[in-house]
Design a protein around this nucleic acid. Structure first.
Lengths: 344, 344
DNA sequence: GCGCTTACTGAAAGCGCATTCAGAATGACT
DNA sequence: AGTCATTCTGAATGCGCTTTCAGTAAGCGC
């Protein structure tokens, strides 16, 4: 690096012919400063294009207006939507958001928490399910504990087992159960499920809620009816293809995320099957795009941006008792055209 | 805020019974430290769950490993894809990304640059077209100049007029022209265009490239064939609806972004028109989802993640001569099923 | 004009770290 | 053993800012 000679508060003070302390007070309004002095300071700052050094500021005790957000992948519409909500309220509160994508590598998650800790971020938000390996979750706890002890705020979205930390929890189980009921009401009795790793609470809740509701109605899900695949469009495509390859014996396919459902739709189309005439498809999340698919996807709608907004608000809000606050958000079944009454 | 009593390097040094300086050197490996001392320091740091204070570090002269990214809206698939690329290379280089969404408000953009400047971010990346009002662009320059002077790095993606700063430029004009040629080759002669504000270079390049290429072929675009709307799905929907309301007299609709094309597709569908049988539709960008639409969208494919990657690389790369480096990236026409030969 | 309160102002003390500089310890040679 | 180069180590300084703390000047009543 080169000189990097920045304008400092001292330069401003000198130009305005006041002391450092007065300049600081004039700029921040932390204490009364006589009119003409204040003006001189403000003018000097303006002329010198002074920008306070956030590091010096944070070091000197002013609280740092930065929050960290960790998700799996911003380019996934689900995270993008949640992140959008977070950034909106962060922006409204004058906060800067540091966003990190782990690309589903636990090492990165830990590393990012550590960096965020080093940044003394005012809050850390973890979005989306954790990792399957309990060792990683423990390592995460170990990283988070001292942060919390040091006064840091942590909030998680859709991440169950996480320590005693503020949480925004979509009601995955109830939503999936409601979807199962809707599908049963349409007359479906033979189902297939496209799922992600069961080790993730989001998945096990959605899957469990769906399966249990079916069971209540006397409908069984055979192991062969359930395919596990990565949480991506291609994962959904692959899972659906596998199902198709072994001869699909279901009138309805439920994917635990919309993104997977999109892949499924594509596989079905390629296979010459019509949705919903030959088979119904339902998803979960209601990411914005699914409204515009053909056919528009039946899904469990989650208020994605609000998930992020609530989490950010929780993290920004004082929590005197240090109790774990949980904010549950219901999902709502939205029947669109990818599902239909089963033909008798 | 409360106590926030953090473990400091001094604590570690004391626990390891060495001096501050030695502890620092052992932890950073900036100078040789005798084996047994180093081990003691490392162990102490481990036990105390020490995390260096990034602010103190940055203040003391170590370069700060943080980059700022400003876009219009992360939840837009275009920005999400570019941001994904940025975050990938940032992560690989141990950098933390601060992402800000302006929601298309110029005040926010300026405010964010200022905050990023205060954070002494190693680089600032501006993604997407600037604002229409030249005053804002000037204000932005004024904010950026001292940053550059102070050794900061700035890179922009798809933002023409911006000062002498490293740029990654998709070839909007050429891409649109190529698309026009493809469409002409399919026999189309009557076109409609869905556009954003012409004041944005991205838009005027795409629109201009398209229009000029048509003109070369002797095909005129009447003002009534061009509708301007916001850069969103709903903008595209509204623009298409307007066109439809006045009686669409075109065999092919070109939208300057895929996101707008998605809205257009929806409006067309609602209006009972079939794509591509009644009308062809083409977009620009090739955001991931358009492959899965029905029909899959014909579009100009831009390597979105690479746009971000290149920009980040430019910003991370030393630029001794301080010359403006421009990295152009070509778009490629991808014909899918939303366009067809015009029926005679 | 004196004492007292109130309103500002400035000098100085850190915040936590990297780093310089001087000094101590070690080793290699004569 | 004595000299000198080499390798480590620690005390001290400063990064830019906020914030005490100890004033100084102004305002007021008498």
């Amino acid at each position: 690096m080169q000189a990097r000679t920045h304008v400092t508060l001292e330069d401003v003070a000198r130009a305005a012919e006041v002391s450092l302390a007065t300049a600081s007070r004039a700029l921040n309004g932390t204490a009364p400063v006589r009119q003409h002095l204040r003006e001189r300071v403000l003018r000097a700052a303006e002329e010198l294009a002074y920008t306070p050094n956030a590091h010096a500021r944070a070091l000197a005790g002013a609280t740092h207006r930065t929050v960290g957000v960790i998700c799996h992948d911003v380019s996934d519409p689900y995270f993008a939507a949640v992140a959008g909500g977070i950034m909106r309220v962060a922006g409204d509160n004058g906060m800067l958001v540091m966003l990190a994508s782990t690309f589903r590598e636990p090492e990165r998650e830990i590393a990012y928490v550590s960096m965020l800790r080093a940044e003394r971020a005012a809050a850390i938000l973890l979005i989306g399910s954790g990792f399957e390996d309990p060792d990683w979750e423990r390592a995460l706890d170990a990283e988070l504990d001292p942060y919390l002890a040091g006064g840091g705020r942590v909030a998680v979205v859709s991440r169950h087992r996480s320590l005693k930390v503020d949480s925004v929890l979509p009601e995955n189980r109830a939503g999936a159960a409601a979807m199962a009921r809707s599908l049963l009401d349409l007359g479906h009795r033979r189902f297939a499920v496209l799922t992600g790793s069961q080790a993730l609470t989001t998945v096990s809740d959605r899957f469990g809620g769906f399966r249990d509701e079916l069971k209540k109605a006397g409908v069984r899900l055979r192991p062969a009816d359930v395919v596990e695949a990565p949480f991506t469009r291609d994962g959904g495509y692959a899972a659906m293809s596998e199902l198709l390859a072994r001869g699909l014996d279901a009138t309805c396919v439920f994917a635990v995320t919309d993104v997977m459902a999109i892949g499924a739709l594509s596989a079905l189309r390629e296979h010459g099957l019509s949705v919903p005439d030959d088979v119904s498809v339902a998803g979960f999340d209601d990411i914005p795009i699914v409204r515009d698919l053909t056919p528009p996807l039946t899904t469990v709608a989650l208020p994605l941006p609000q998930l992020g907004e609530r989490a950010m608000e929780l993290a920004l809000t004082e929590n005197p008792g240090r109790r774990r606050r949980i904010h549950r958000m219901a999902g709502e079944v939205v029947i669109r055209s990818s599902t239909r009454k089963v033909s008798p």
